[in-house]
Amino acid sequence: MNSTTVIAQKWYRINSIILMATSQYFRKCFESSYEQEEKVLTLHLKESEEPAFRKLLEFMHATSSTLATNPFKLSSAMMVAKQFEQQFWVKKCKEGLINRFKPLQHPELMSLLSLAAVIEILRSDDLDVQSEDDVYDFTLEWALRNYPSKQRRREVLEAELGPLIRFHYMSYKKLVQAVTNYYEYFSREFILKAAMTAVVAKQVSPDSHFVERAYKHKPLMVSEEFQPSRFCTIFLTFTRDECLKLIQSSPIRSMDFEFHDGEFFIQVLNKLKEERHIITYLNP
């Protein structure tokens, strides 16, 4: 069955079999059309969504796989693909947005990103950032630029974006800053709960609800003791891939931590002792 989709005064020839195979949304639409013996599928879109929808149709029919060349169009394409449940295109657009435009490193792109796009970005485990502190700063700056009303800004941050910030991977210094300077962004109850949960997770065990992002500065856990004298124990965990990087002489740097009024970090690297072929991990 070949059908025609109408958008305002525009008609598109589409192949229902192809669309049903790659989108749950279209599968439900066409199954309903079959039951009612309809030959035309009508969709209602905003005018601003039409270019992104046309691009989605081209991708689904394998006539184009080229991503948009600016972050606004790429963001729109990702949102339309999500609306029509085309998960592969959502993933492709998200990867393009994060890897090509690196929105967290370019503040000038913030005004081009919709709320839905920022949500998708914050859900990613592959953000190119030094630490979760950067994610926190980006989220607050984006909200400040896009929501002048403090009340609306708080609503968006607490309901949509705040739960996607991985507070337990933030540094203690940033957590203190968050609790101290929360008024423009969060309610006191929200930020205190987030910060206290993060502190407990750092001292006991990592929160399994979120995995680590691809941080340049690896998160760590700090256990501080005061008896018989003041000392701290640092915990770092490594994945198999990270261990392989160490073998290949790629050092891994931890996030900063404070102890005895000083600020420190740990850099883990390997040194091959040729005479014994032993890998030793040095913590300078």
Rank of each mutant, 00 (worst) to 15 (best):
W11G: 11
Y12F: 07
I14K: 01
L19D: 01
A21D: 05
S32M: 08
S32Y: 06
S33N: 07
Q36F: 04
E37N: 12
E37V: 04
L41N: 01
T42E: 06
L43V: 00
L43S: 00
E47S: 12
E50Q: 13
P51C: 06
P51L: 02
F53V: 01
L56Y: 02
L56A: 03
T63M: 08
T66K: 14
L74Q: 02
A77E: 15
E85C: 11
K91F: 03
C93T: 13
G96V: 04
Q105A: 13
Q105P: 07
S111T: 15
S111G: 12
L112F: 13
L112N: 15
L113F: 11
S114H: 04
I121W: 00
R123W: 07
D126W: 03
D128A: 10
D128F: 04
Y136I: 09
S149V: 03
K150R: 07
R154M: 08
E158I: 00
L161R: 04
L161N: 07
F167N: 04
V176N: 14
V179Q: 14
Y182I: 10
Y183N: 13
Y185G: 09
F186E: 06
R188A: 13
E189L: 06
L192M: 14
K193C: 11
A194C: 11
M196G: 10
V200D: 14
Q203A: 14
P206Y: 12
V211E: 15
R213D: 04
A214I: 09
K216V: 08
E224W: 06
F226G: 01
T233P: 09
T233F: 08
F235P: 11
L236E: 13
T237N: 12
E242M: 05
F259K: 09
H260T: 15
D261F: 06
N270S: 14
K273I: 04
H277C: 03
N283L: 12
P284F: 03
